[in-house]
Every structure is written in structure tokens, then in C-alpha cells.
Design a protein around this nucleic acid. Sequence first.
DNA 1: CAGGATCCATTACGATACTG
DNA 2: CAGTATCGTAATGGATCCTG
Lengths: 121, 121
Amino acid sequence: MRSSIEEAPDHCAIEFAMEMLGGRWKLAILKQLVAGTHRFGELRRALPGITQRMLTRQLRELEADGLVTRTVYREVPPRVEYALTDVGHSLESITHELDKWGRWYRETVRREAPSGPCPPA
Amino acid sequence: MRSSIEEAPDHCAIEFAMEMLGGRWKLAILKQLVAGTHRFGELRRALPGITQRMLTRQLRELEADGLVTRTVYREVPPRVEYALTDVGHSLESITHELDKWGRWYRETVRREAPSGPCPPA
DNA sequence: CAGGATCCATTACGATACTG
DNA sequence: CAGTATCGTAATGGATCCTG
């Protein structure tokens, strides 16, 4: 997800977007930050299943792309806060829509899936 | 992108969605199909950079998830047409928004990037 | 607390060649 | 035309241990 389309023509801006936002965690992290500033540990707890390694990496990429800010407070137990930039906020409705769609699909579509493993017990 | 969250609680439906839609090509393919039915070769030409191998795989996964239909016409030069299901169509606005965002980001944000290679000469 | 370093497994992606 | 088969690279994801 970090290859180099870079200079693709006008077609498939969505492909460009997915290069930046694709992957398992990016949009989930963004969605958390839409709700407000989070510390590293808060994000970790909010995203069960992610390892700190991945969380760190994804946050650095989001920071490099100008979607989140990283603020370090040099205190005795160190504190680092992550927040959305204006650009990051521009994805707010998309993350919301995707979340809504995911919930709808999981609760509605999967039930009536062909050979779905959820017969009405 | 095909692991097993499956039974995640109510948090992070977006993560579930990205498991299904993440990756470089899925949403780009869906976006093409929003415009109407496409043959395999048409999709391939519409998505420069994709290999037939990837296109085949992604289409099969989309089909398995109930987002697209695959219709085979047993003719002399074989013909296969792909189209969106109703569920696939439910992603129409999201693909549109993401495409719009990608275009906006590429044309607006990247220019004024921090330490960007484009100082106002 | 927030991470970096290291090692390892799995998956995504891609180039090329071949086929009904 | 619309694939399948084979092979290789790179990215992703994770476990564990270490540090300012």
C-alpha cells in the first residue's frame, strides 16, 4: 500500500486514495480520532487486535500524509497525543459512511448469505 | 485482507468493512461498475496497472461477498460480464466520495505539503 | 507510557507464460 | 477473450524483548 502510483492520470483517483487509506487500520484509526484527541494507549485500547508496532507505523504514515498530528509532552511518564488535521477531518463523513455500511452489511447482508452459517436457531 | 475479524463486537464496523473492501483495487473496480456492466477486458483497460491475475482474484472475492455478479456467455470468443448487485450499488456514494476526496487531496493538499518540493517560486 | 529492534509467518501484489 | 499456473517480491501483521 505504499507503492508508487503517484503519477497516475485523472482516472482512478480512488485508487490513489486507497493507496493512502487502504489497509486494515488506517480508516479505523481515523474514525477514532474523529471523536477527538487520543493518547497512544487510548487508541490501542480502542482498536483491540492492533499491536503497538502496527499502531505506531500506521500513525507515522498518517502523520507523514498530513492527516494527523503528533504532539509529545515531555513528562515523567511520557505522553503523546494524536489528533486530526483539517485534512484528516475532511474524511469524517467518509469514515462515518463506511462504518455505517460495514454495520449494515454485517447485520443485514451476511444473514441471508448463500450457505450462510447462521440458520435461525 | 482476508483474515478473520468476523466476530468483532459493535466497535469498528469500519474495520470489518476495510477487511472486505481494503486493498488496492476493490473500490476502484466497484467504481467502474457503478457506471454500468463491464466485460473483463473493459475493466482491465479501465484499470491500467492491474494484471489479469489480480483482476480475476478481486472480482471473484467481490462476487463471493455478493457485491458483483458474473455472467458467462458461452460464445465463440468467450464473453464475461460483470455488474453490481444491489448490495454493490449501496457503495455507490462511498466510492464517489472517496474518488472525489482522492482527487481533491492529490490536486490540493500535496502541493502545499510540509517540506513539499513546490515552494511558491 | 510510548515506542524501537528483531525475528518470523502470512498475505497482497505483480510479471510472465500458457490454455479452452 | 478470459482466464489459470507458476514464480518471485514486498508489504502486512504479529510475538517478544528492550529502552528513555
